[in-house]
Simulated assay, not measured.
Amino acid sequence: MSDDTLLEFPCDFPLKVMGRKADDFATLVTGLVESHAGPGPDLRVSERLSRDGNFVALTVVVRAQSKSQLDAIYAELSAHERVLMVL
């Protein structure tokens, strides 16, 4: 375990990604995550709409291999113009 994280890798790590409701938002987010984590059955996605249906919150559970991988995923998601927030 590294000194700069309490996580032990590999581990399942949930990412909450929020944006405006669009038919392709989940595809966009999973594509960005898969560019760092690779495609595969380890990626689980659940979706929740806002009360008025204007926004969507995706929870993407990824099998993270390292802190640097998570940092890269967060950086790419946060930089995308259609992503409003990443937790």
Rank of each mutant, 00 (worst) to 15 (best):
F55V: 10
L15D: 06
K16W: 02
R20A: 00
A26Q: 11
A37C: 03
Y74E: 02
K16A: 06
V45H: 03
E34C: 11
V62S: 02
Y74N: 07
S2N: 09
F55A: 13
Y74K: 09
H80K: 13
N54M: 02
P41Y: 08
V86Y: 12
D4V: 10
F13K: 06
R48K: 14
D4G: 04
V60Y: 06
F9V: 12
L70K: 07
D71H: 04
E81R: 15
V56G: 07
R51T: 08
E8S: 07
L6E: 11
E76I: 02
G38P: 01
S2I: 06
S46V: 15
L87Q: 12
Q65D: 01
T59N: 06
L84W: 02
K16C: 03
C11R: 12
P39E: 14
G31I: 15
F55P: 02
D23H: 14
L77R: 13
T5P: 04
E81N: 07
R82F: 00
S66G: 00
E81D: 07
G40V: 14
G31Y: 14
L77W: 12
H80Y: 07
V33G: 01
H36I: 05
G53H: 11
K16T: 03
P14A: 14
K67V: 05
V83A: 07
A75Y: 00
A64T: 01
D52T: 14
K16R: 11
D24A: 10
V17T: 10
A72L: 08
S50D: 08
